[in-house]
Amino acid sequence: MTISLNVNDKIVQLEVDPDTPLLYVLRNDLELNGPKFGCGVAQCGACTVLVDGRPQRSCVMPVAAVAGRSIVTLEGLGSREHPHPLQTAFIKEQAMQCGYCSNGMMMTAAALLAKNKRPTEDDIRTALRGNLCRCGAHGRIVRAVSEAARNGHDGDTS
Protein backbone atom coordinates (compact mmCIF):
# COMPACT_ATOMS: atom_id res chain seq x y z
CA MET A 1 0.00 0.00 0.00
CA THR A 2 1.03 3.64 -0.43
CA ILE A 3 2.17 5.36 2.72
CA SER A 4 2.91 9.04 3.03
CA LEU A 5 5.71 9.99 5.40
CA ASN A 6 6.99 13.35 6.61
CA VAL A 7 10.72 12.84 7.12
CA ASN A 8 12.94 15.79 7.94
CA ASP A 9 10.25 18.16 6.65
CA LYS A 10 9.96 16.39 3.32
CA ILE A 11 6.86 14.46 2.26
CA VAL A 12 7.60 11.12 0.63
CA GLN A 13 5.21 8.52 -0.80
CA LEU A 14 6.22 4.88 -0.52
CA GLU A 15 4.79 1.63 -1.78
CA VAL A 16 5.58 -0.63 1.14
CA ASP A 17 4.14 -3.29 3.43
CA PRO A 18 2.53 -1.33 6.31
CA ASP A 19 4.18 -3.61 8.88
CA THR A 20 7.69 -2.76 7.66
CA PRO A 21 9.73 -1.38 10.52
CA LEU A 22 10.32 2.34 10.02
CA LEU A 23 14.09 1.77 10.37
CA TYR A 24 14.30 -0.23 7.13
CA VAL A 25 12.29 2.38 5.25
CA LEU A 26 14.54 5.17 6.51
CA ARG A 27 17.79 3.33 5.83
CA ASN A 28 16.98 1.36 2.69
CA ASP A 29 14.29 3.31 0.87
CA LEU A 30 15.24 6.86 1.87
CA GLU A 31 18.96 6.03 2.16
CA LEU A 32 19.37 7.85 5.45
CA ASN A 33 22.44 6.92 7.49
CA GLY A 34 21.47 8.39 10.87
CA PRO A 35 19.30 5.68 12.46
CA LYS A 36 21.27 2.47 12.99
CA PHE A 37 20.31 -1.18 13.25
CA GLY A 38 21.54 -2.31 16.65
CA CYS A 39 19.15 -4.91 18.04
CA GLY A 40 15.80 -4.86 16.27
CA VAL A 41 14.03 -5.31 19.60
CA ALA A 42 14.01 -1.77 21.05
CA GLN A 43 16.72 -2.48 23.65
CA CYS A 44 19.76 -0.46 22.58
CA GLY A 45 18.54 2.87 21.17
CA ALA A 46 20.84 3.02 18.11
CA CYS A 47 17.81 3.38 15.80
CA THR A 48 16.24 6.31 17.66
CA VAL A 49 14.37 8.95 15.66
CA LEU A 50 12.05 11.72 16.80
CA VAL A 51 8.36 11.19 16.05
CA ASP A 52 6.40 14.35 16.77
CA GLY A 53 9.35 15.43 18.89
CA ARG A 54 9.51 12.28 21.02
CA PRO A 55 12.36 9.76 20.82
CA GLN A 56 11.09 6.50 19.35
CA ARG A 57 12.73 3.19 18.45
CA SER A 58 12.34 2.97 14.69
CA CYS A 59 13.36 -0.71 14.62
CA VAL A 60 10.01 -1.80 16.11
CA MET A 61 7.80 0.99 14.77
CA PRO A 62 5.58 -0.19 11.89
CA VAL A 63 5.81 2.39 9.15
CA ALA A 64 2.01 2.64 8.94
CA ALA A 65 1.90 3.86 12.55
CA VAL A 66 3.88 7.00 11.74
CA ALA A 67 2.17 7.93 8.46
CA GLY A 68 1.57 11.65 8.38
CA ARG A 69 3.50 12.30 11.60
CA SER A 70 6.68 14.35 11.80
CA ILE A 71 9.78 12.14 11.70
CA VAL A 72 13.20 13.68 12.34
CA THR A 73 16.43 11.75 11.89
CA LEU A 74 19.99 12.83 12.67
CA GLU A 75 20.19 14.23 9.14
CA GLY A 76 17.23 16.44 10.00
CA LEU A 77 18.79 17.61 13.22
CA GLY A 78 21.67 19.30 11.43
CA SER A 79 24.41 18.99 8.87
CA ARG A 80 27.99 20.04 8.25
CA GLU A 81 26.65 23.30 6.83
CA HIS A 82 24.06 23.87 9.56
CA PRO A 83 25.13 21.85 12.57
CA HIS A 84 22.87 21.28 15.53
CA PRO A 85 24.50 22.28 18.85
CA LEU A 86 24.59 18.60 19.79
CA GLN A 87 26.56 17.70 16.67
CA THR A 88 28.97 20.56 17.31
CA ALA A 89 29.37 19.48 20.92
CA PHE A 90 29.86 15.78 20.09
CA ILE A 91 32.70 16.75 17.75
CA LYS A 92 34.22 19.24 20.18
CA GLU A 93 34.15 16.77 23.08
CA GLN A 94 35.18 13.85 20.80
CA ALA A 95 32.22 12.12 22.40
CA MET A 96 32.51 8.73 20.76
CA GLN A 97 34.85 5.94 19.87
CA CYS A 98 33.16 3.92 17.15
CA GLY A 99 30.22 6.32 17.11
CA TYR A 100 27.64 3.68 16.24
CA CYS A 101 25.46 4.63 19.22
CA SER A 102 25.92 8.38 18.67
CA ASN A 103 22.76 8.70 16.58
CA GLY A 104 20.63 7.44 19.45
CA MET A 105 22.50 9.56 21.95
CA MET A 106 22.00 12.76 19.98
CA MET A 107 18.35 12.08 19.11
CA THR A 108 17.46 11.21 22.71
CA ALA A 109 19.40 14.22 23.98
CA ALA A 110 17.66 16.48 21.47
CA ALA A 111 14.31 15.48 22.95
CA LEU A 112 15.67 16.06 26.45
CA LEU A 113 16.99 19.52 25.62
CA ALA A 114 13.66 20.47 24.08
CA LYS A 115 12.01 19.90 27.48
CA ASN A 116 14.85 20.79 29.80
CA LYS A 117 17.16 23.58 28.66
CA ARG A 118 19.61 23.19 31.54
CA PRO A 119 19.73 19.53 32.45
CA THR A 120 21.97 18.39 35.29
CA GLU A 121 24.40 15.55 34.79
CA ASP A 122 21.92 13.25 36.52
CA ASP A 123 19.12 14.42 34.21
CA ILE A 124 21.27 13.53 31.22
CA ARG A 125 22.27 10.14 32.57
CA THR A 126 18.64 9.37 33.32
CA ALA A 127 17.45 10.47 29.90
CA LEU A 128 20.08 8.27 28.23
CA ARG A 129 19.57 5.22 30.45
CA GLY A 130 17.96 3.26 27.62
CA ASN A 131 20.74 4.03 25.14
CA LEU A 132 23.62 1.57 25.25
CA CYS A 133 27.24 2.44 24.51
CA ARG A 134 29.73 -0.42 24.33
CA CYS A 135 32.93 1.62 23.84
CA GLY A 136 32.57 3.41 27.18
CA ALA A 137 32.26 6.97 25.89
CA HIS A 138 29.58 7.74 28.49
CA GLY A 139 31.45 10.51 30.30
CA ARG A 140 32.20 12.34 27.07
CA ILE A 141 28.62 11.97 25.86
CA VAL A 142 27.29 13.50 29.09
CA ARG A 143 29.78 16.36 28.74
CA ALA A 144 28.77 16.94 25.13
CA VAL A 145 25.07 17.12 25.99
CA SER A 146 25.82 19.61 28.79
CA GLU A 147 27.92 21.62 26.38
CA ALA A 148 25.13 21.66 23.79
CA ALA A 149 22.68 22.83 26.45
CA ARG A 150 24.99 25.70 27.39
CA ASN A 151 25.40 26.71 23.76
CA GLY A 152 21.94 28.09 23.24
CA HIS A 153 19.93 25.15 22.08
CA ASP A 154 16.71 26.61 20.72
CA GLY A 155 14.51 23.74 21.79
CA ASP A 156 13.02 23.28 18.34
CA THR A 157 13.31 19.65 17.34
CA SER A 158 10.06 19.26 15.46
Binding site: L74, S79, P83, Q87, F90, I91, M96, G99, S102
Partner: peptide
Protein backbone atom coordinates in the same frame (compact mmCIF):
# COMPACT_ATOMS: atom_id res chain seq x y z
CA UNK B 1 36.25 10.15 11.31
CA UNK B 2 34.06 11.87 13.90
CA UNK B 3 32.42 14.66 11.85
CA UNK B 4 31.03 12.28 9.23
CA UNK B 5 29.60 10.15 12.03
CA UNK B 6 28.10 13.13 13.86
CA UNK B 7 26.50 14.45 10.66
CA UNK B 8 25.13 11.05 9.56
CA UNK B 9 27.17 11.05 6.39
CA UNK B 10 28.23 7.68 4.97
CA UNK B 11 30.68 6.40 7.57
CA UNK B 12 30.02 2.71 8.11
CA UNK B 13 29.77 -0.51 6.16
CA UNK B 14 26.05 -0.30 6.90
Amino acid sequence: DIPRKAYAEAAYIQ
